[in-house]
């Protein structure tokens, strides 16, 4: 029977782990920023490849969106990588949008309102899905 206050009979020895050194932390930061930059560059490059070929535009849009969502919502189980992959997904979106910067002046106010509304509705839908 499980007794909440019972002492474990054979406690496992506590394994001592070394704390991260400064050099290691510096490599970790470098590695993280290069990962984000890689996806930022992928976003830009994907936009550069699709602009001369409009027939693949929707394929590109779906690919970028799904790629970003995969990065943001299906990160590895290791908690230290989860925030890195989410920010990498955001970098992918930012890169994909930034490559169109010379055309962004064509956007009007309702485009922005539409994006915001869609984002809110999306979050709402995700919240509903989460409750079930």
């Amino acid at each position: 029977m499980f007794l909440p206050f019972q002492k474990p009979q054979n406690p496992e020895p506590i394994e001592l782990k070394p704390s991260d050194s400064l050099v290691l932390k510096r490599y970790q930061n470098l590695n993280s920023w290069q990962f984000r930059s890689l996806f930022f560059a992928i976003g830009i490059t994907a936009s550069n490849f699709v602009r001369p070929n409009p027939s693949y535009f929707w394929f590109y849009v779906c690919g970028v969106i799904l790629g970003g969502l995969a990065l943001m919502f299906f990160p590895p189980t290791d908690s230290s990588y989860q925030s890195l992959w989410r920010t990498a997904g955001i970098s992918l979106y930012v890169g994909a949008v930034l490559a169109w910067w010379d055309l962004l002046k064509l956007l009007q106010w309702w485009h922005f309102v539409g994006v915001v509304v869609i984002a809110i509705l999306g979050l709402f839908a995700i919240g509903l899905g989460g409750r079930r």
Partner: peptide, 10 residues
């Protein structure tokens, strides 16, 4: 090139 550079660097 940017993707290559960042991949190598990563």
């Amino acid at each position: 090139g940017a993707i290559s550079c960042f991949t190598v660097g990563y």
